[in-house]
Simulated assay, not measured.
Amino acid sequence: MFASIAFVVWRESVEALLVIGILDAWLVSQQLASRQPRLYLWAGVGAGIIVAGLLAAVLLVLGDGLSDDAQTIYQTVIVLVAAGLILQMVFWMRSHARSMRHDLETSLEGAVAARRWWGVFLLALVAVAREGSETVVFLYGILSAGVLGSVFSGILAGLCGLVLAIFTYGLLMAGSRIISWRVFFRVTEILLLFLACGLLMTGVDGLIDLGLLPRLSRSLWNSNALLSDGTSAGGFFAAMTGYRARPNLMELLAFCAYWFVVIALVYRPRRRTAIAG
């Protein structure tokens, strides 16, 4: 659980830092006489963080105010939503990563040219709020999927992820040969796909417990001797990959269906834009 939280905060924080860095660097490069655009930019960053914090408060209040049965349903829904959002984010980044910098700078250029400083504010707010909201939902989904030792452990995991994100961003911006943006996104993309699978399997287990899905069979095998998902190491592996030591048929079908869809989407042929001659 600790490592899962740290990983999500690390990955999402690096992406947020990338967006903020692109916007701020473009404003600095324009050598504007007024500091007003950058003030609006950083005000938008702060507002985006507040929006994400409000979402976290809403999720916690809603969860705490429910009965035990309703809370189980609520947490199951959040876990499945988190899995779906991770998939959406991964494939959105695959499609837009190359043009993201250009799109952000184009939007910012239009706002600055028209002296629409609130446009700069909103651009930063939306960018940060999106990353922050995704992080909140992912973390709530992870917490719903298991038991964390203490609140302090969760805060410490988040801080570790944030510190690592700042260090990673520094390496990426320095153009280090050890790590590049391409390598970073590819490696974390794979890890996120495994994490989404782990959340999906937790959601499937929740639907089975609620009686909304049938088990279809008893345990198909028992691999506890190899790796038990009841231990700390096995539980982390299960949370990050969807591994089950004693899976039933429904769990096996869900696991196979997930990876079939993911592999099909990853390797689907990309459309080529026709060039008018």
Rank of each mutant, 00 (worst) to 15 (best):
V77R: 04
W259G: 08
V112M: 09
I190G: 06
L139I: 13
F260H: 06
G141K: 05
G21M: 08
I50N: 00
N222D: 08
A111M: 15
L66T: 00
A238T: 04
D68K: 00
T273L: 15
L125W: 02
S13Y: 08
L27W: 05
F138M: 12
A274P: 14
Q30I: 08
D64T: 01
G211D: 03
G206I: 05
L125A: 03
A233H: 11
G44K: 07
V261N: 06
A6K: 01
I50C: 06
L139R: 01
M201G: 01
L17Y: 09
G110Q: 06
F194G: 03
D209T: 06
Y169W: 14
W26F: 14
I179A: 10
S34C: 09
A127N: 02
C160Q: 09
L87W: 06
L18T: 05
V45E: 12
G175I: 02
S144I: 03
F184G: 00
L253E: 04
V187G: 02
G175V: 01
L191N: 00
V19F: 10
R244T: 02
G234Q: 07
W181P: 15
Q36K: 14
R35G: 15
S219N: 11
A3W: 12
F91Y: 01
V81F: 10
Y140D: 12
I49C: 13
I49H: 06
R177L: 15
V9I: 09
V261K: 01
V19E: 10
A254L: 10
R182E: 13
M240S: 11
R271Y: 07
G234E: 06
S219D: 14
L32A: 08
R270G: 15
A113K: 15
M1P: 13
A56D: 15
T188A: 07
V120D: 06
L122K: 02
L249R: 01
G154T: 04
R101E: 15
S180V: 04
L80Y: 00
L17S: 05
Q75D: 11
L212Y: 04
L162E: 12
T241K: 05
L104F: 07
A52T: 03
A127G: 10
G119F: 02
L27T: 00
L193W: 09
C256K: 00
G46S: 04
E189F: 09
M93C: 08
V90M: 04
T231N: 09
L143G: 10
I142K: 00
L62D: 00
L125R: 00
L87G: 05
I155H: 12
T231R: 15
G21K: 00
R271F: 10
F185V: 07
S150F: 09
W181R: 09
A254C: 14
M93Y: 10
I190Y: 04
R101S: 12
D103K: 08
V79K: 02
G211V: 03
L171S: 11
V163T: 09
S153F: 15
A264K: 10
R215Q: 13
L104K: 01
T202D: 15
M250Y: 04
S99D: 14
A83P: 11
W117P: 09
M100V: 08
A165K: 00
V112A: 03
Q71I: 07
V262F: 04
G141T: 01
E105F: 07
V163L: 15
L192I: 05
I263M: 10
W92F: 14
Y258I: 06
R268C: 14
I49A: 09
R177E: 12
L193E: 11
L54A: 03
Q75W: 12
T202Y: 15
G44R: 07
T231S: 15
S180Q: 08
